[in-house]
């Protein structure tokens, strides 16, 4: 085993450790607000999923909540209409729903580049939203899909009002997804995707098809977003149209940029900072909190264009270089 490999495995372990520590601190600081923390994890999975296509592959999209919402509805419909109330099976339904939505969105969005690509993604999220709205016998339409009551996890741990089970379930899902994605981005396939982001023509001159690779990545991204959607459906026991909204898509892009694109840590950092900040300032100043969120974003984009995590990582790397 080379020193390089040891270093990257070390960073994996640090990442897993950081998630566990952050989750524990969250649990100790906000024992009465575990629902918020669980929602942060669900949205964090959406932002990770967005990072896969935007940060690692360079696809521009403002419709990524389509994948998240599809996962949420798939898990919710499985429970409400088919009596599949085992949380693990519901998560699996969410993965399938998200992956299928990823395939559909990928095939459409990847037909274009740049601005037309962005427009296609916006059209898609509105179509998904409208479809869910119209298919109200399945989705509950604008009232939301209710009647989701997941079984206790492994038959023992109930999804109760305090949300402890949901929170721990969420943390475990996040750790599993994070570990798999760390392996993915370092794999030959991950390397191929990074190449596609920089220069698709060069990749073609190597005999690889950027299109096929990107569609694969979209399906994986859909599965990840689907886990987040399913977690949301299981923990809140309701799925609303807002999970399939343009606003949710745009916010997740904002969180990704805030944390730093092209890095799994960046995606998670952005989600945590954005959602905690939003929660805090909306409570402290219900009238001007959106102004403050806007000011924070402008400050980050102007002074830390690589995002909070990206800028910090670059700073540490520079320091380390100076020392050697």
């Amino acid at each position: 085993m080379t020193a390089r490999q040891n270093r990257s495995i070390g960073r994996d372990l640090i990442g897993i450790g950081a998630i566990v520590v952050a989750a524990t601190i969250g649990y100790l600081l906000f024992p009465d607000n575990l629902a918020l923390l669980t929602r942060i994890i669900a949205i964090g999975l959406l932002v990770l999923s967005l990072d896969l296509v935007t940060g690692y592959c360079g696809v521009a999209t403002l419709g990524h909540a389509a994948l998240f919402g599809s996962g949420a509805y798939a898990a919710g419909i499985a429970a409400a209409h088919y009596g599949i109330t085992d949380p693990l099976l519901m998560t699996f339904a969410g993965i399938l729903g998200g992956a299928l939505a990823g395939l559909i969105c990928g095939v459409v969005i990847l037909r274009a580049h740049g601005l037309p690509q962005l427009v296609l993604s916006i059209s898609l999220i509105y179509l998904f939203h409208e479809f869910a709205n119209k298919a109200s016998s399945w989705t509950g339409g604008s009232d939301g899909l209710s009647g989701i009551s997941p079984d206790p996890l492994f038959g023992t741990f109930e999804f109760d009002l305090w949300g402890q089970t949901a929170y721990v379930f969420g943390v475990v899902l996040l750790l599993a997804v994070f570990t798999l994605l760390r392996l993915l981005v370092r794999s030959p396939f991950g390397m191929l995707c990074r190449g596609i982001k920089e220069d698709p023509l060069r990749i073609m001159a190597m005999g690889a098809s950027p299109k096929v690779a990107l569609i694969k990545m979209y399906v994986i991204s859909g599965a990840v977003a689907g886990v987040g959607g399913a977690l949301n459906a299981i923990s809140t026991q309701v799925v609303g149209l807002d999970s399939l909204s343009f606003t949710q898509s745009a916010e997740s892009l904002v969180m990704l940029v805030l944390g730093g694109t092209g890095s799994l840590f960046g995606a998670l950092t952005g989600t945590i900072v954005f959602m905690l900040f939003e929660d805090y300032v909306s409570a402290a100043n219900p009238f001007h909190w959106l102004t403050m969120v806007g000011a924070l974003l402008i400050a980050v984009v102007l002074f830390a264009p690589k995002g909070l995590y990206g800028t910090a990582a670059a700073f540490i790397a520079r320091r380390r270089e100076k020392r050697t």
């Binding site: 030959p188 396939f189 390397m191 191929l192």
Partner: peptide, 20 residues
């Protein structure tokens, strides 16, 4: 490494790292 893996039809592998 990417060129070698692509030539051998291994560039779609989602696990493992060329360093190993």
């Amino acid at each position: 490494a990417l060129a070698i893996l692509q030539r051998d039809g291994r560039s779609g592998k989602m696990f493992g790292n060329f360093l190993s």
